[in-house]
């Protein structure tokens, strides 16, 4: 893996993001280069306010960089119209949110199915096959008819994972996916994502939880809007955190 630009799912080049804040400007991201290859399981780690969410938003095409290049699956997102970015999100990206954000009035099955309904290229039989497969893989086959309100936090996040994966995205983005869960549930969610990764899905998530960092194959460290460590090679702090957790 990782031989040539063809396999890069995400390429950020000298990306900055400024937010106006009253009369001043917040430089949330100040010149970030990141390259993620197909099949990675990477964590974006850093203290609060370091710019993790901002970077994820830029990669997720829900926000536009102030300068620099954001290339997702070979497409320069700056050149896309709003409707094209929406389509890119639908077809190429998967999202898992900290607060799950399922549709309360739909049941589990319908929530997982939803992104597929937004697409015209997937027929009914294929839809059903994919949804049932993912619901089984996240271990919720018995809760198919339940609505989010009837599920626990961990179960909801499993539904969210199934929903994110059902479109077979090039990369799944998760902003602090375990922050609203107790540590045991967080662990099992993490385990589930790692399993999905072994089966071929690329993941990038943010966290400041050492336990989560320990689970990652690559930890990209961000501080003050800049990359402090690309996470290649030895990762003593992740190892230490893992040791600390056990």
């Amino acid at each position: 893996m990782g031989n040539g630009a063809g396999d890069a799912v995400v390429v950020l080049e000298a990306v900055t993001k400024d937010y106006p804040l009253g009369k001043t400007t917040v430089h949330a991201v100040r010149g970030v280069d990141i390259r993620l290859e197909r099949g990675e399981f990477a964590v974006l780690a850093g203290p609060s306010g370091s710019g993790k969410t901002t970077v994820l938003n830029l990669i997720g095409c829900v926000d536009v960089a102030t300068s620099g290049k954001v290339i997702i699956a070979g497409r320069d997102t700056k050149l896309l119209k709003e409707s094209e970015r929406t389509r890119l999100r639908l077809e190429t990206l998967g999202f898992i949110f900290q607060s799950f954000n399922l549709i309360p009035v739909l049941d589990l099955y319908q929530n997982v199915e939803f992104p597929l309904l937004l697409r015209k290229d997937i027929d009914k039989a294929e839809r059903k096959r994919r949804v049932l497969e993912l619901v089984e893989r996240v271990g919720l086959t018995g809760q198919m008819k339940q609505r989010p309100g009837e599920l626990s936090g961990g179960q909801r996040q499993r539904v969210a994972i199934a929903r994110a994966l059902v479109t077979r995205p090039a990369i799944v983005l998760a902003d602090e996916p375990t922050a609203n869960l107790d540590s045991a549930t967080g662990q099992s969610i993490l385990e589930l994502m790692r399993q999905m990764n072994r089966d071929g899905t690329t993941f990038l998530f943010s966290t400041h939880d050492p336990v989560v960092m320990a689970a990652a194959r690559r930890v990209i460290r961000i501080a003050d809007g800049k990359i402090a460590d690309q996470g290649f090679g030895a990762n003593p702090s992740a190892g230490a955190a893992a040791a600390h957790a056990h």
């Binding site: 929406t86 389509r87 998967g94 999202f95 309360p104 937004l118």
Partner: peptide, 13 residues
Amino acid sequence: PEIGALRAIGMSR
């Protein structure tokens, strides 16, 4: 948040 999520996962305006 729910609508934001729907927009994020690819629902059009």
